[in-house]
Design a binder for these strands. Sequence first.
RNA 1: GUGGUUGUAGCUCAAUCGGUUAGAGCGCCGGACUGUGGCUCCGGAGGUUGCGGGUUCGAUUCCCGUCAGCCACCCCA
Length: 433
Amino acid sequence: MKPKALPGFRDFYPTDLALRSHIFNTWRTVAHGYGFEEYDGPPLEPLDLYTTKSGEEIVGQLYSFRDKGDRDVALRPEMTPTLARMVAARAGELRKPIRWFSIPQLFRYERQQRGRLREHFQLNCDLIGEASPLADAEIIALAIDVMRAFGLGPQDVRVRLSDRRVLTAILRYRGVPLQSLPKAYEFMDKVERMRREQLEEFSSRPEVFAPATVLDLEEVSRIRGWEQLESELGRSPELATTAEPLRQAYQALGQMGLAEFLEIDLTIVRGLAYYTGIVFELFDTGRTLRAICGGGRYDHLLRDLGGVDLPALGFGMGDVVLAELLKEKERMPADVSGIDVFLAFITKEDLSHVLALAHQLRDAGLRVEYALSPQAVGKQLKLADARTARLAVVVGPDERSRGELILRDLASGAQEAIAQASAVEIIKSRIHG
RNA sequence: GUGGUUGUAGCUCAAUCGGUUAGAGCGCCGGACUGUGGCUCCGGAGGUUGCGGGUUCGAUUCCCGUCAGCCACCCCA
């Protein structure tokens, strides 16, 4: 049996790593553009960092074990608890608002499927210490601009935007009892993909939502866009007040020119229990993939987790679904592999000159390769071609006796004799010019 | 964790009703081409048909189990 990577874990071959690097580079560039600073924490954490405050789903998916010091530990399944701990430890000295991002590798023991593995990298962006809706707009704009940086527009991806406070107020106004709100959230979250039996199950117990009805919930779930939300909010002045933060964030995003990406959709609830305000998810417009990104405001999490009461919000964006999306939309990075110059030699006596020149060219910042064992020139050029080298240098006894080298442009096939003494300068200018 | 479905070379796929030595293209290596790459032609390596068991004279093919991938649940990135 051939050894294989564990299920849900990935080997990154050079072409795979090229894509991953492209994703990481883009993430970093956009995050830096928003003034975010990068941080990181340990991939292995004390188990109780997750068991005490994270949702039950996450705990059920933990990669956990006991270490040699009898500590219960877990591979991190999410970054937020680590972030909360780090911020809490230095909350006093950190200038607010804190703009931090990280690209952690996260682990969850669950059955893998397309777009969901047991290990993945996730861009985490968090804004801590600012309660204003402008912060919400800022974090959503950042997520959108990551998409734009990959060459994706509103025809490719959309943000589905909601606010838990607004949803709660609407549901309450329609008559959903306080104790039935969790059930109502579940309904909103699942209504889109519910099968008939599940729908009937809700309908068969009208007392759960009474005096509201399942029909009320369905109506609320069908609200799309600001216009429709506005007419729902028009039912009561209090509803309009509750929706003020969402309105301000929505307006700010419009003023940034990102309105085309936005879709108000109250069925975005998000499973994680700690969200307290605006929540959002990024989807591909074709809806063939899982959510590309999800996040929202979690104003009490730092208090509960780290003991420091600061408003906060953020999002996570995984590399797996994103890579699927980039493939689907043909936004893969151009191939940047290959070398600049390949040095070929004719005789063993030429080798020392190749080694010297190779080193000079590498010192000059060029990507250089040569054959590591003597072989026919034809073969050496074949390798040069396979490496997609732009130039080839042929060092032979005849030219050397004249103090020259042959410089060949592999794209055009043109070649010329150049003086050995000025070879580095000439080659440099050919590559850069 | 539950249900369904699919596993043949590095990749994409063939192989008649269960039949004798499991093939092709691409890729890889070599040769034609010992001082010039791409193209072409020729050759080679590479398979325990995912693994284990069963039925059969004979299994890539049928059955069972298992592992892995995919899909739907669950949940999420």
